[in-house]
Amino acid sequence: MTDLDSAADVVAAVCLLLGALLCLTAGLGLVRFPDVLSRMHAGTKPQVLGVLLVMLGAAIRLHGWSASWMLLLVAAFQLVTAPVSAHMVSRIAHRRRHVRRDLLLVDELGGEPAELGGDEPADAH
């Protein structure tokens, strides 16, 4: 029984540490990336996985309490809500011309977000 407990504790500790590390990289990306859209990348992907891992680790440690279900619920909410807020913020950023166009290799919207696509399929060049 104690063996099982200590093994679960090791797994939980690894999850917590990896999650915390991913939160640190999210902060680092926020500072280092050059424009709003790149910073959104840092604010979504590593962060969502970080939250998932931390919640998983905490749920393992709190196994048996009713609170562990709440932690998994937080993780699911994070999966559903993070893309929504990221999409809303990045759409506003693009419409307000907060994009550093000199950093773009390709821009298929051509700075006209209101007329996306046009008449032909937009990836025909």
Partner: peptide, 14 residues
């Protein structure tokens, strides 16, 4: 805010 939430979870876990 998400980092704060992670911190609370880490405290609760430890």
């Amino acid at each position: 805010l998400v980092v704060i939430a992670c911190g609370l979870a880490v405290y609760a876990a430890l």
